[in-house]
Amino acid sequence: MRNTFKFLRLPVVKIAAVIVGLSFGWAYMAISGPASEVVEAAEKRLAQGQLVKGAAELAGLSKSAPVVLELFTSQGCSSCPPADALLSELADQPGVIALSYHVDYWDYIGWKDPFSSEASTIRQRTYGKELALRYVYTPQIVIDGRRELVGSRRGEVLVEIEEAAKAGKAVTIAISGDVGNAPTIDFSGALHLGGTATLWVAVFDEQHETEIQRGENKGLFMVNKHVVREFEQAALWNGIDTSLSFNFKDLNITPGDGYALILQDGLGGTVIGAVIQDKANN
C-alpha cells in the first residue's frame, strides 16, 4: 500500500491523471452540448433566413414570435469580438431582435468603450439575480430572459434560439400611432392571473465601426450592430388593457436609429412579448 502511494506521487502519474481528468471534462462538454446534426440543421435554417420561423413550424405553431437576444459585451474584452460578430449576423435574421449592451466595468482596463453605460451593467446584473447566477461576465447572451450562455458559443446560441422560438410568446404586441415619438402599444394575449408585466424600451444605434487604440483588443477594427444607447421602463401592463401609450419625451430619451419594446414578466423575468421598430420598418 505504501508503494502504491509513492507511485501515485510520481510526476508522470500526476500528469496522466490531469490528462485523464481533462479528457473526461472535454467528453462531458461534448455530451452536454447540442449534437452536431442539431447544430447543422440550425445553421441550414439560419442560411435560409428561417431560423425562428422554421423552428416555430417544427413545434406546430401557426405563427412565429420574435426571439429577443441581449448580448452583454465590451470593446475592452478580448473574448467578445466573436460574440459581437455573431450578434451582427443574427441582427439581420427575420424573427430575431438582437440587442448589444456595452457594460462599463471593463472601461478601466486600457480602453474605455465609447458605448458603455451604467444602464447596460444594471440590466445585466438584474438578469444575474433573476437567473440566480453567482457572477456576470462578458460575452454573455440572454435569450428571451430565460436562458443565458457564453455569447461566442455559436452552435449553442443557434439551438437555444430555436428552442425559444418553439416555446412561443404569451402576448403579441404591435406599435401604432406616432411610432417615432409617442407610440401606442397594442396587446393581444393575457398574463397569468394577478400578474404584472414591465414594458421596456431599448433605443439603439444601427451600427458603429471603431478602431481600438488601446487595451486587449488594440489594433482591431470592430463592428457593433444594434448598440443599445438608452434603456428605460416605458410602462407597466396589467394584462387587461388592450393598449397603452408612452412618450419618449416623458422618458427623457431620444429615439435613435431604432428601438425595441420588450414585455417582460416582472423586472427581469421571461420575455412574454416583443417588437422592434428599426430602419427596415420605418
Rank of each mutant, 00 (worst) to 15 (best):
W200N: 01
I161R: 02
I253F: 13
P82V: 01
A16H: 08
N3W: 07
F7Y: 09
T242F: 13
I19M: 08
L90I: 06
S243L: 07
R134Y: 07
R146A: 14
S64Q: 13
L261R: 06
N282L: 12
R45Y: 04
E206H: 11
F204K: 01
V96T: 07
S245W: 10
D144N: 15
L51K: 08
H192E: 14
I143W: 01
I240S: 11
N224G: 01
P183I: 02
G177N: 10
A41S: 15
A55E: 11
H208A: 12
L46H: 08
P81D: 06
M1K: 05
I240Y: 12
F204Y: 13
G256H: 15
G128D: 09
F204D: 01
F5G: 00
E148W: 02
G256K: 15
V96K: 05
K53T: 14
A42Y: 09
K129H: 09
V157D: 02
A27K: 10
L158T: 06
V223D: 00
A235L: 10
L71M: 07
G256P: 00
Q48I: 05
S79D: 08
A59E: 08
G180T: 13
A182Q: 14
I185P: 10
T184P: 00
P183R: 02
V275C: 08
Q75M: 11
L263K: 07
I161C: 08
